[in-house]
């Protein structure tokens, strides 16, 4: 069985004035359909670069990304992206921001159907009463809710989340993690999320991919997170296993992330059971 998302040996080199800089080197990852993957690493390690290559916003220098049997060559609405800053269009209301994509993707549906889709996703993220406000009238957290609704409303093959809660205070972050998990639970869209928050990764993901430090960053280790779903933050926090995993992650980030990835078969394949 081939993986739903197959990232094989991608390397990204930027031409800088002081010579080329290789940000990511021979990054390998295979993701199964319906999996939630968290990509964790120190800031500047190139995890966002990997995500933006999967999104098709940047092309890898070498290597290839294959999503559902097709090579990724350009950005497209089959991958819903939630950016760190929600980057809503400030001249459009929350509704109009979501509708922009929905009208583009579901252009064959009737006007009423498209309207229903937009309203459904906005109410699921808790914005039923603020649909017709402009981004300037919404709080940071509410704007990111719109960003989440905008990505889910396109019913994408894959969700790409680039530190979506990085700019929020911790209370709002908890709230939005819940919103995200609830939505994700409904149709289990394959998701790849970049984060530097250990607890967030453990709470949301099926597997946590730890990246080594850049430049020339790659996959360091992969951690299976086998808590049953649906997950509840309270239960999780009482589970001693949670703290074991957490220790492991923090240990990697503090010590082992400095080492270069070992030679031989990519650890991603080992951990996923392919090699």
């Amino acid at each position: 069985m081939s993986a739903f998302l197959d990232i094989s040996y991608i390397t990204k080199t930027y031409g800088a004035k002081s010579g080329p800089v290789t940000v990511v080197r021979e990054f390998n990852l295979r993701v199964n359909r319906g999996e939630f993957i968290a990509l964790i690493g120190h800031s500047g390690c190139g995890k966002s670069t990997v995500l933006s290559m999967v999104a098709g916003l940047q092309a890898p220098t070498t290597g290839a990304i294959i999503l559902d049997g097709k090579e990724v060559t350009d950005a497209g609405p089959d991958r819903g992206v939630v950016f760190q800053s929600p980057c809503l269009l400030p001249w459009r209301t929350a509704y109009e921001n979501v509708a922009l994509g929905v009208d583009q993707v579901f252009f064959t549906s009737s006007r009423a159907d498209r309207r229903a889709i937009v309203e459904y996703y906005l109410s699921v993220v808790g914005l039923a009463d603020s649909m017709h406000k402009r981004p300037a009238e919404l709080s940071q957290g509410m704007r990111q809710r719109v960003g989440i609704a905008r990505a889910f409303a396109l019913s994408p093959k894959m969700l790409l989340l680039d530190e979506p809660f990085g700019m929020l205070d911790s209370l709002t972050r908890f709230e939005l993690q819940g919103v995200l998990l609830d939505l994700w639970q409904r149709d289990r869209t394959t998701a790849l999320m970049v984060t530097h928050d250990v607890d967030e990764a453990l709470f949301l993901a099926d597997r946590v991919v730890m990246m080594t430090n850049g430049p020339e960053a790659g996959v360091g280790e992969i951690l299976e997170v086998d808590f049953p779903r649906p997950r509840d933050r309270g239960t999780l926090l009482e589970d001693p296993h949670f703290y074991e995993l957490r220790e492991n992650l923090i240990g990697f980030l503090n010590e082992r992330s400095h080492r270069k990835p070992v030679a031989g078969p990519p650890p991603s394949l080992v951990a996923a059971g392919y090699a």
């Binding site: 350009d74 950005a75 497209g76 992206v81 950016f83 922009l100 583009q104």
Partner: peptide, 14 residues
């Protein structure tokens, strides 16, 4: 124009 806005256009293939 903010590159983010243009990315929105690219993702949606406008």
């Amino acid at each position: 124009i903010d590159q983010d806005y243009l990315n929105v256009a690219r993702v949606l293939r406008l």
